[in-house]
Write a protein that binds this DNA or RNA. Sequence first.
DNA 1: TTTATTACTTTGACAGGCAGAGTAATGTTT
DNA 2: AAACATTACTCTGCCTGTCAAAGTAATAAA
Lengths: 109, 109
Amino acid sequence: MVRSDIIRGHLDSIILRLISEKDRYGYEISQEISLRTNNRFQIKEATLYAIFQRLEKREIIEAYYGDITHGGKRKYYRITPLGRAYLTELVREWTEVKEIIDLFMEGLE
Amino acid sequence: MVRSDIIRGHLDSIILRLISEKDRYGYEISQEISLRTNNRFQIKEATLYAIFQRLEKREIIEAYYGDITHGGKRKYYRITPLGRAYLTELVREWTEVKEIIDLFMEGLE
DNA sequence: TTTATTACTTTGACAGGCAGAGTAATGTTT
DNA sequence: AAACATTACTCTGCCTGTCAAAGTAATAAA
């Protein structure tokens, strides 16, 4: 399991990417992350919902309530055009960050 | 210039890597980072010295004063055996984090 | 002698992430 | 029907890493 303070700062990217594929609700995203990473990383609930609030306030995502529920009521999020642009920028940034950190980390494995 | 909150958590790695090459002092590390990244990333002084304190307390690095100065007196740091082990672990972690984030970021560039 | 550069330190604040506790609706067991 | 498990979201208060800002001090250059 990866320490979360090392993945910190990239959670916006991960969540936004998942929402960009299709509208999703919180619990679903949480499960999807565990699934795709094969449980190597799990997002904490408190963190996830804090990110939703942040992104919604910045108009990067927007919320609506779904009707199909299975327990608590689902709050779906969709990405806005602004969010798409932001995600593109995040992907570019990730490429650059990888390059930079690799500059220091390579040749040691 | 890369935002520092996206590189956050990897600064220990970068600094430790530089110290592992040879004993270094703060100002030197700061310059070296700017140089190697071609100014795409610069570490802030306050951050750098805070990291030194943290790593020294954890006995990952240790300090001594050098005699050759050129302005303020230089405080050199060397990596300890514990530090070497920690660095190895950090490199392994970095490989894993890259894999995980790439899981979400790929196919969008 | 004034200014620039080198070099380190400290304080206080901010932001992201999280533990823990809580609310509520639905499905499953007994 | 009662009890329990699961789904699903919210809120509060804390911790930690980073940083702006301000300060100290020594050497080199103008």
